[in-house]
Amino acid sequence: MNINRFSKNINLLIGTLIIGGFFVLMCISIFYTPHDVTAMNVPNKLLGPNGEHWFGTDEFGRDIFSRIMKGTQTAFSVGLLTVLIGVTFGVLIGGTAGYFGGWIDEIFMRVLDALMAFPGIILALMLVAIFGPGILNTAIALGIIAIPNIARIVRSGFVQHRDSEYILSAKLIGVKTYSIMFRHILPNISSQIVVAATVTFATAMLAEAALSYLGLGVQPPNPSWGRMLKDSQSYLVNAPWYTYAPGAAITLMVLGLYMLSNALRDFLDPRSKA
């Protein structure tokens, strides 16, 4: 792993820069934002970008840049939590179904099919309606929705590898079943999982934005990019910069995640190391 190879990979470079940048922004926002994110200042409402307010102010005169900064916390926590739930259960369910096959496979996959039959956002709406809105519940709902997709990817990977000769050989030398599953097969499909996880992260962020846009995700006054997008909609003509900021943040973050996932796929494969 040398710097030269790192810099050659343009996806990795830009992806890391974008996501790293947001990450740094998030860390800073925990301790410091240029303005108080919830303090209203109505006389200064809907100001254009200026030296004091870099991205302008919203309809209550709150600093948009500070709110974007604070919004990274929401984006990261919802994204990470969703990925954590989705990958953990996806790997467990998909791995078990794929490795053992037979009726276990049938039952698990049919249940997931049933879950998949619901449109994701409707399911999320239902879950949020049951458990109530908020960051944690949003992430749990989105995590549950992410399970079938990841489980399918993991399952197909396990099916592909379970009969290969190196697994037969592992059985012969007495490797325990869980060890075959998680130490022998799992690393071989880690690149697929990483890609799926990054995509899930991006989708979760978008879904969180959508849920918040519908008013069911993150509750005011906590800033969320999706909610800001929704609020800015009414001022599209008078204050277009209000829309640009959260829109650009979402776009950049998703773009960065996709680039990073592409790069990681290549990076994690030992065969691609010359």
């Binding site: 290969s164 000769e165 190196y166 050989s169 592992a170 012969l172 022998h184 880690s190 065969r271």
Partner: peptide, 14 residues
């Protein structure tokens, strides 16, 4: 023990 046919799939690539 067993020696397998396909030298490309009989060793764990990872």
């Amino acid at each position: 023990q067993m020696v397998f046919q396909d030298p490309f799939s009989s060793l764990n690539p990872r």
